[in-house]
Design a binder for these strands. Structure first.
Lengths: 233, 233
DNA sequence: TTCTTGAATTCTGGATCCAGAATCCAATCT
DNA sequence: AGATTGGATTCTGGATCCAGAATTCAAGAA
C-alpha cells in the first residue's frame, strides 16, 4: 500500500491512528501529529521532510502538510531551505544553554508574579497537578501533564504572553528533554518540591529551587545532545 | 478594475507596487506586505481579513495569502476564528504592560551579555546605526534602522534565540509604537544615549537607561491605545 | 579514470477547482 | 408585528493539477 515502508513510516502510521480522533481541521490534526512525531523522536533532527511522503503516510493531501510545516517553522521545530524542502531543526549546545538562560529569567519572574496571587485553592490544585505530572514519565501524557502543572504554577491565566513565551521555549527543547528522560534522567519528583516552595511563600527560596531544577534539566539535555552526536546514528 | 475600491484597497495597492521587487517566493512577498500593512495601520485591529479580497487586491491567488496569514498568526499579529476567517489582532492595555515587562527582563539581560563583548569596533558601528535610526522617524525604513541598531546592541549574532524572542515582542507592539511615534511621540535621540551608556561600560547605568526608555515607550503606547479606543472610529 | 556538462526526474510552490460550514435574508407562523 | 425556521449565498478549508527550479545520474571529453 505504502511505497517505502521504513520504521519511520510505520511509527507515523501508528500515530495517525490515534490522531484521527475529532480535530476541527485536518491541518490542525497534521500539526499535532507532526509535533508529536518530532518531540517523540520518530522524526529525527536533520531529517528531510518531503511533503508528498508525509502526506501519503498520514493519509491526507499535501496542502494541510504545508500549513502544518509553516506553523512548525514558526515554532522553531522545523527549518525551511528556500526551494529545497524542510528538515527537522537540530539545536547546538550553545543554543540549548541560551534557551535555559532565558527560561530562568522568564520563569523566575513568572513564578514571583504568580506567588503574589497565591491562595489555598491554587496550592491545592497545584498539588494535584504535580502528583499527576510526577506519575507520568513518558509520552504525550507526560507533556500534557507537565504543561498543565506549569500553566497553573506560572498563572498562565493572568500572564498569557509570558506563558506563551515559556511554552515556546519549552517546545523548542521538548524533543531533547523527552529523550533524556527516557534513558533515565532525573525522576526526583521535583514538581512536588516546587509546590512546597510555592506554598511556603518564600519567593527567594522558590526561585532558587526553580533555577536549580532548570540547571539540572539543562545538564541532562546537554549530555543527551552529546550522546546523540557521538553515539546512535 | 477593483470591485470595492475603498481607501484600504488603494493603500494595499500602493504597498503592492513596492513589494513587487524581487522576493524569493510569492508567499514571502505577501507575508512582508501584510506585515507592513498591519504595522502601518493600513489594516486596523479587529478588521476582518477575507482571503479572496486580499488575494485580488495584491494580485495573487488565495494560497500564498493563506500561508502568510498562518505565519502572521504565529507572530501574534492576526487571529484565526475557527471557520469564520481571520482578523487583525488587537491588544489590551494589560497585555501591553506584560509585553514591556518581559522586554525589560530580556533586553536588560541581553544588554549585559552584550556589553561583556564590547569592543571599539562595535561601539563605532553602534554609533553609526544609532545615527541612522535617529534620522528615520517613520515608515518601514524606521523599523529597519531600529532593528539593525538593536541587533548590534544586543549582539544578535551571539544570542540568536534571545534576539528572536525580543524581535517577536517588538513585532507584537510595532503597530502601536508606530502609531504613537507618528502623532508626536518621543524624539529624544535615545539611541545615541544608549550607545554612550554602552561605551561607558557601566552595566548598571546602561540597564537603568534602557528600562527608562522602555517605560517611556510603554507610556506612549498606552496613551495611543486609549486614544484609539475612544477617539478615531 | 575523473571531471564536467547536460538532460531527465523529482520535488517544491502556485493556481484553479470543489465540498462543507456559516451567515444572512426572506417568508411564514404565532 | 415580531420571531423563528428554512433556504440561498458566501467564504473557508481541502484536493487535484500545473509550472518552475534543483538535484542527480549518465555520458562524453580531458
Amino acid at each position: 500500500m505504502i511505497p517505502n515502508a521504513g520504521s519511520t513510516s510505520a511509527d507515523l502510521h501508528e500515530l495517525a491512528q490515534r490522531h484521527h480522533t475529532a480535530y476541527r481541521s485536518v491541518g490542525a490534526m497534521v500539526y499535532g501529529l507532526l509535533q508529536e512525531a518530532i518531540l517523540s523522536g520518530t522524526l529525527r533532527p536533520g531529517q528531510k521532510l518531503r511533503q508528498e511522503t508525509l502526506a501519503e503516510q498520514i493519509g491526507v493531501s499535501r496542502l494541510p502538510v504545508r500549513s502544518a510545516l509553516i506553523q512548525l517553522e514558526s515554532d522553531g521545530l522545523v527549518e525551511f531551505h528556500d526551494r529545497r524542502g524542510a528538515t527537522v531543526r537540530s539545536i547546538s549546545p550553545d543554543q540549548a544553554r541560551e534557551v535555559y538562560r532565558i527560561r530562568a529569567l522568564l520563569e523566575v519572574d513568572a513564578l514571583k508574579q504568580s506567588m503574589k496571587r497565591s491562595s489555598p485553592e491554587r496550592v491545592k490544585r497545584l498539588r494535584e497537578l504535580a502528583k499527576a505530572a510526577d506519575g507520568q514519565h513518558e509520552g504525550p501524557e507526560f507533556v500534557e501533564a507537565r504543561t498543565q502543572f506549569y500553566a497553573e504554577l506560572y498563572d498562565a491565566e493572568h500572564n498569557p504572553i509570558t506563558w506563551e513565551m515559556i511554552e515556546q521555549l519549552r517546545l523548542k527543547m521538548g524533543r531533547y528533554v523527552l529523550g533524556w528522560r527516557v534513558v533515565g534522567g532525573s525522576h526526583t519528583h521535583s514538581h512536588e518540591d516546587l509546590v512546597d516552595a510555592f506554598a511556603s511563600g518564600d519567593a527567594t527560596k522558590a526561585s532558587a529551587l526553580l533555577r536549580k531544577h532548570l540547571a539540572e534539566v539543562l545538564k541532562g539535555v546537554l549530555s543527551w545532545l552529546d550522546a546523540e552526536a557521538t553515539g546512535t546514528d
